[in-house]
Amino acid sequence: MNKTEYLKSLSNELGHMPYGDVKDIIQSIEEHFDEGLGEGRSEEEIAASLGDPKELAAEFKDGVKFNQIMKKRKRLKDYAGPDGRGRIFVILFNAFVGIECWLLLLAAIIAAFCFLAADLAFIGLIVAGLITGTLTEFMVPFIFLILTLACVAVFLVALLILGIKYYAKGLKSYIRWNKNIWNYGLGED
């Protein structure tokens, strides 16, 4: 395994860690490679002595888990009953900003769905027209139109898949963030 392969594999294995952490870790391992190369060692040799990227990633993740547990424990220790300010913040933030933003994004996803449905219906109509022979004299321009509409459909499907995935992910962490403030107040994090 060379340097690029090793770093790529490591960052894949780190997967769900926050971007900043992954960047930081990759940077330190990259630095390790550069130091080794400076000593005249080969990329493969350095990669082998660093150990399996999967195991290394697991060790990094264990460290993060440990920190989260310690943080939570500290927070529980400092916990002195519900924080009124935190709860008011959650209610006001959701009333004026939070819920509106999420509804707006939901509306955008629904709009994209409708657009996709209309696009597919349009393709269907033209195909039906061509098959039944009503549109045969415009064959060539209609085929181009179908191709264009098909491209739009593919683009919309990709957009929707990504959009829904990140919407769900984002909503989940948004709810977690709210819960945290609701339970532990505004103080930390």
Binding site: S49, L50, D52, E55, E59, G63
Partner: peptide, 15 residues
């Protein structure tokens, strides 16, 4: 493995 030291350093720094 040479890599082992990095997760440890990270953890120590965060503590």
């Amino acid at each position: 493995a040479d890599g082992t030291v990095y997760p440890i350093l990270r953890k120590l720094a965060s503590e």
